[in-house]
Design a protein around this nucleic acid. Sequence first.
DNA 1: TCACTTTGCTTCGAATTCGAAGCATGGGGG
DNA 2: CCCCCATGCTTCGAATTCGAAGCAAAGTGA
Lengths: 168, 168
Amino acid sequence: MVRRMGEPRWLDETELRAWTGFLETSDLLHRTVERQLREVGGITTVQYDILHRLNESPEKRLCMTDLAERLVSSRSGITYQVAQLEKAGLLRREDAPDDERRVLAVITEEGRRVLERTAPGHVEAVRAGLLDALTPDQVARLADIMDAARAHLRGTVELHPPRRTRSR
Amino acid sequence: MVRRMGEPRWLDETELRAWTGFLETSDLLHRTVERQLREVGGITTVQYDILHRLNESPEKRLCMTDLAERLVSSRSGITYQVAQLEKAGLLRREDAPDDERRVLAVITEEGRRVLERTAPGHVEAVRAGLLDALTPDQVARLADIMDAARAHLRGTVELHPPRRTRSR
DNA sequence: TCACTTTGCTTCGAATTCGAAGCATGGGGG
DNA sequence: CCCCCATGCTTCGAATTCGAAGCAAAGTGA
């Protein structure tokens, strides 16, 4: 399965602009949003996402694996962040009734308050950092482009490395 | 300077798609590219960027601040990564001749070899992860959109927190 | 020249992330 | 029922990142 490739197809000017622009924009954007959340809400983007997902879910609770599924980090990362949020009183853990192995994270009233308090500023930061710099037409095109890329990547990328099989 | 905001302007469906799509795409993309570089070249994206920038620069050398300027991390982060790369033999440090305070990072022959060896696969990963999923028209539009966003953010965001002035 | 500030870099401790390994429960196939 | 593997989560150590604090050289103004 050695793949010897011929002459590499280097990026032309437009492709390079798209790629480097994407890299730098996502980096800058992440920093500003992170900073805003930190200053106003005292939480990180990851924590905001966790709380948001919990709050959006019908039962206001999700198990660790579901949280990790399509979110930022690895399973151990979720364990860590949920522990932080639990210490801060923004969620609590519950054992799943039907499966002893599962642990459910449940958003607390306090967590909901933090979310309500930070959400408007967070949205404003997203507008100020990205959406306001674009025309409505560009926003629409960006949405379509990101949909295409996201769907493509979802099919291609394995989020987590495959689990090491016991034997061997 | 307390800004009391009225009813927050929530994101409409398209804006939400643009934003969440952007977040998830950049995350997935970062992971795949990172993994490819790690497996093939044994280096991280950050290290690739550093080597690439050094190699692109006219004198094949840059001082730490210039490296940190618009790159990934804080000053201390650059110190750390440059130390790693120096240990790996991919660059060496030199004192700047004209300013005793500055430290120059200079890419080595070995570093150049790693770059040449990894670059084609890296570009392929970028194509496979992003560009191939888009039409040429979409790539061009993405480039323009990212240019706009990048320029906007550059003007808005302060990369590093302001330096603490010594006396109160 | 002398104080004082600025600038460039490094060191330090804290926080976060990851993957590997470990533990416990669940789910078959015999 | 029992063995074995799959699944869910946590713990561990390593790597990376950050900001604050510190040190040294360079610049500035009197």
